[in-house]
Design a protein around this nucleic acid. Structure first.
Length: 420
RNA sequence: GAGCCCAUAGCUCAGUCGGUUAGAGCGCCAGGUUGUGGCCCUGGAGGCCGUGGGUUCAAUUCCCAUUGGGCUCCCCA
């Protein structure tokens, strides 16, 4: 163990065979769901300009103020992207996607980076998938996004989730609400936890998601943002709830749901699971009507979500959900002698052209060792080739599960395996 | 940034009240079957007992530090 000179950095892990199958199966579900919603994949670089993230996500957010991996080369300031929405917004502006007309329906899967202390469900390199509807104003867009997200979990079989829903309104309402919160909490400052007290001036809305024991009773009497929403915001929020009801997507309105990024407006939501332990958010999202403009584009309403893949895996694990089993080859060639091995090597391209998965021993090991390997790899059939077989052009085809053997000619292999 | 826990074979873990060559199960390799997997039997490889220092005649064991890992708070995915 100590002989291993190099290891991954703290909070970054390798995905090995045995584990990767689950990821691939999940990715297949994501791509298929996106196809059904007619969203198209977008891939943006892992490195972005630090300024983009700082502006887009917000200078005062935890992400920007203390969790970014950054480095400089000459004049350029690089950051490992900590989230997906700001880069998508940047791409939308940079490539003038607005000029393509209509609404851009985009989704992505990929790694993101935050320099936090790792723990269960939190890695420094983690993975998210997400979707964005850019250029869509109506509440139907919000609901499509939520439907997209929840459908994926339903497809997987994760059903014991809670969808929390709130509206954070427009900036003006939020400012009025912030003031009301300050007015409410100021006299109680002495009873607040230290973290919350510090937020009183900087970001009082964050006091609302405090988990500190002592803050809970104080939160209970706090003003609710719903009372500060403009008529338009209120109508939008009502419409979202109404449409969710129509789609029979259950949700809980949580007036204290405040998401950590600055760019959210109007609808905000979060999907939580009881199987995740302390980090219980599977994913979340909301509307961000001002972000595109903030990063230099035309005023463009948008809504999106992002979900953590590692957390999804934890939930699958807890629920015993296996999305995929590793599959073995159709044929494993067991060879004796160099000539036999060469015959097998030359035969395999034909079989593969027919769609058969085949492999063989590469080291000229004993027959027993090769059979053992075929078994370990869960091969459906072993084809045994020795001198005799080559001379007669008749080979032993062994059904590994039934332990039955038959003699067949070389040209029969494909058909026999395909038909069983 | 703060707190708690852990560190012995590839994996999961015993163990030494401080005392010669450090163990098991699984896995791996080989033999039993000179051409046949899974079950069984036999054998083998594989550990500076995370690292550094201290106490001691003697440390994998006790003490300190350090590194790595896990969990929690904060916050998020």
């Amino acid at each position: 163990m100590s002989k291993t000179a190099y290891t991954t950095h703290h909070g970054m892990t390798d995905l090995l065979p045995g584990e990767i199958e689950q990821w691939q199966a999940l990715e297949a579900i994501i791509h298929e769901t996106a196809r059904l919603f007619h969203f198209q994949e977008i891939r943006t670089p892992v490195l972005e300009q630090t300024e983009l993230i700082a502006r887009g996500v917000g200078q005062l957010t935890d992400i920007v103020s203390k969790e970014m991996f950054t480095f400089d080369r000459g004049e350029d300031h690089y950051v490992l992207r900590p989230e997906g929405t700001a880069p998508v917004a940047r791409a939308y502006v940079q490539h003038h996607l607005a000029q393509r007309g209509g609404t851009q329906r985009l989704y992505y899967i990929g790694p993101f980076f935050r320099a936090e202390r790792p723990q269960k469900g939190r890695q420094r390199q983690f993975h998210q998938f997400g979707a964005e509807l850019v250029g869509a104003r109506g509440s139907i867009a919000d609901v499509e996004i939520i439907a997209f997200m929840t459908r994926i979990y339903r497809q997987i079989g994760i059903t014991n989730t809670t969808l929390k829903l709130n509206s954070v309104g427009e900036p003006e309402s939020r400012e009025a609400y912030r003031k009301a919160l300050r007015d409410y909490f100021k006299p109680l400052a002495g009873q607040l936890s230290e973290v919350s007290r510090n937020r009183l001036d900087t970001n009082p809305m964050r006091i609302l998601d405090s988990k500190e024991e002592q803050d809970q009773p104080l939160k209970a009497g706090a003003p609710v943002i719903t009372d500060f929403l403009s008529a338009a915001s209120r109508k939008h929020f009502e419409s979202v709830r109404d449409l969710l009801d129509k789609l029979r997507i259950p949700y809980d309105v949580d007036p204290f749901l405040v998401r950590g990024l600055d760019y959210y407006t109007e609808t905000a939501f979060e999907l939580t699971s009881p199987d995740l332990g302390s980090q219980d958010a599977l994913g979340g999202g909301g509307r961000y009507d001002l972000l595109i403009e903030e990063v230099g584009g035309p005023p463009t309403p948008a809504v999106g979500f992002a979900c953590g893949i590692e957390r999804l895996m934890i939930a699958c694990e807890a629920l015993g959900l296996k999305l995929a089993d590793p599959s073995g080859p159709d044929i494993y060639f067991v060879t004796r002698g160099e000539e036999a091995a060469r015959w097998a090597l030359e035969k395999m391209p034909d079989l593969r052209n027919s769609g058969l998965v085949c492999t063989m021993d590469y080291s000229g090991r004993s027959l027993k060792a090769q059979m053992k390997d075929a078994n370990r790899q869960q091969a459906r059939f072993a084809v045994i080739i020795g001198e005799q077989e080559l001379n007669d052009n008749m080979f032993t085809l062994r059904d590994m599960e039934k332990s039955e053997e038959s003699l067949i000619s070389g040209s029969e292999i494909t058909e026999r395996v395909l038909s069983s």
